[in-house]
Each structure stands twice: as C-alpha cells, then as structure tokens.
Amino acid sequence: MTAHTKKIVLLLIGWLFVFIGGIGIFLPVLPTTPFLLISLWAFSQSSERFHDWLYNHRIFGPPLQDWSKYGVIPLRAKIVALATMAISATLVIIYSSTPWYALGAMILLMGIGAGFILSRPSRPREKETP
C-alpha cells in the first residue's frame, strides 16, 4: 500500500467513525467517545488539520481531551458499556449452543474489559488546593 493510499484509507476511517460517533450523540445506547477516539487516531496518522479540528471541537473535543489528559471514561459511557456486555453475555448464554469453553473465554474477556472500564476515573480529578 502506498503512503497516499494509506492516508486516504485512514481519512475515510476517521470520517466514518466521526459519523458513527455523531450518531451516538442522539442514540443513548451508542457511546460517542470510543468512536471519536478511533477517528482521532486515524486523523493523527493522516491529517494534522483534521486531528486538531476534532481534538479542539466545541462538542467532541472535551471528552477526547479528558481521555488524553486524565484517562477518563464518563459514567454514562461506563453504564452503557457494562450493561451492553451483560445483556450480550446473557443472550449468548441463553440462546446459543456455544461450547462451555467459548462461553468461558467470552466471559473472561468481558470481565477484563469491564475491569478496565471500572478502573478508569469517571471525571477529571479536582485540582488540589495548597
């Protein structure tokens, strides 16, 4: 893949995930920030102009900056992610004939993901006053 083709593919990925993240503003079950993080990464590899635009955007910028500076996952995003994992696991367990070892692997991986999500702060720490 040539450098020019790679840049075009990354720009398309960036804009696709900006679009999906934008939909997440209006759909409560679709978290916006993870998709925008993918966009931010794609733009960082392909367009400094679009990266800076997204990172400093009036609406999209603050959660991206909170993640970048403080590793924050907002409480709403945590709730949606954990609920989605729990519902998905329940549906797979009840309605599929997946072997026990695959179910165990799924639950283990979801547990690792949930642990990571829960380990992140929900908002930036308050500045300590001297």
Rank of each mutant, 00 (worst) to 15 (best):
A3H: 01
I8V: 06
L11F: 12
L12W: 13
G14P: 06
W15E: 10
L16F: 14
F17Q: 08
I20K: 10
G21T: 07
G21D: 04
G21R: 09
G22M: 10
G24H: 01
G24D: 14
F26R: 11
P34R: 10
S39P: 10
S39R: 04
A42S: 04
F43E: 00
S47I: 11
E48W: 15
E48T: 15
E48M: 15
R49Y: 15
W53M: 07
W53T: 01
Y55Q: 04
N56Y: 15
H57V: 00
R58G: 07
G61T: 06
L64M: 00
S68Q: 09
S68E: 07
K69E: 14
P74Y: 12
L75V: 11
R76V: 13
I79K: 03
V80M: 04
A81Q: 13
T84R: 10
T84A: 05
M85R: 01
M85Y: 08
A86P: 07
I87K: 05
L91S: 10
V92Y: 00
I94G: 08
Y95G: 00
T98E: 03
T98W: 14
W100E: 12
Y101P: 10
Y101S: 09
L103A: 05
L108G: 08
A114W: 03
I117F: 04
L118S: 13
S119D: 06
R120N: 00
E128K: 10
